[in-house]
Computed example of a mutant assay.
Amino acid sequence: MKSLPSPETKAKPHYQGHRQRLKDRFASAGAAAFADYELLELFLFQIVPRTDTKPLAKALLEKFGCLSAIFGAPDHLLKDVKGVGDSVIHAFKLHHALYSRALQKEIHGKCVLQSWQQVIDYCGFTMSDEMREQLRVLYLDQKNQIICDEIQQTGTVNHTPIYPREVMKRGFEVGASALILVHNHPSGDPTPSRDDIDLTLKIQRIGTDLGIKLHDHIIIGKGKHCSFKALGII
């Protein structure tokens, strides 16, 4: 009778050697030498043991299009991808939260008008992949430093309610001298609608009367944004 191979002679799964080779290449060449799916593979190594993670990485990129969309995707859409479980979702959410917090810290304690690109980076990362429209308000003190940064309203896929009275009421509560409005367009196109423009001008008028300056209204799209100030609307 033919004897079974000993544990030492059993072939190792191909992905075991692949994992170490990928880690070694990352250590020597850095992220610039990697395709997006390879970086995602490396990330998934920490969460999914003893499994070839390349198919999962490629499936996620095929579904969501880019890395930032994966990490910001809602749970129910992530679960549609075979191989994504609670541990993977938790890791994505944690990564997204950590990076959002890091970007947030970059703009707090600084004059936002002198750190404009950092403001755009922060708002873009935290809002561009949201499936519903959100209104974020950055309330500023006399030095144009952030006093309060909050999501004030969450709406539907193509509309979020903006209530000028609530915007200004909160401004008085926190002692704001100025504010910046930010909302996202889940469609990806940051072009302002007529309603966006009319509401912005209304808030600007009310703010002027109450001594709270509206510096800008930013619309976040997919990889791009629109500034009402840059467009000459305000």
Score class of each variant (00 low, 15 high):
K2M: 03
P5E: 12
S6H: 11
P7N: 03
T9P: 01
A11D: 09
Q16L: 09
K23E: 15
D24T: 09
F26C: 01
S28P: 00
A29R: 05
A33W: 01
D36P: 10
L44K: 03
P49D: 09
R50F: 07
P55R: 07
L56P: 00
A57P: 00
K58C: 01
K63P: 10
G65E: 04
I70G: 03
P74G: 08
D86N: 14
A91T: 11
F92S: 07
K93P: 00
H96E: 09
L103Q: 14
Q104R: 14
K105L: 11
K105P: 01
G109T: 06
K110I: 15
C111V: 08
V112L: 03
Q114T: 12
Q117T: 11
Q118P: 01
F125Y: 15
T126Q: 13
R132P: 02
E133C: 03
Q134W: 07
L138C: 01
L140E: 07
D141Y: 04
E150N: 11
V157G: 04
H159V: 00
E166A: 15
M168K: 07
G171T: 10
A176T: 06
L181H: 06
N184F: 12
P186L: 08
D189H: 10
P190S: 08
Q204E: 12
Q204T: 09
D209M: 09
H217S: 13
I220N: 08
K222R: 13
S227P: 00
S227C: 00
L231K: 14
G232I: 12
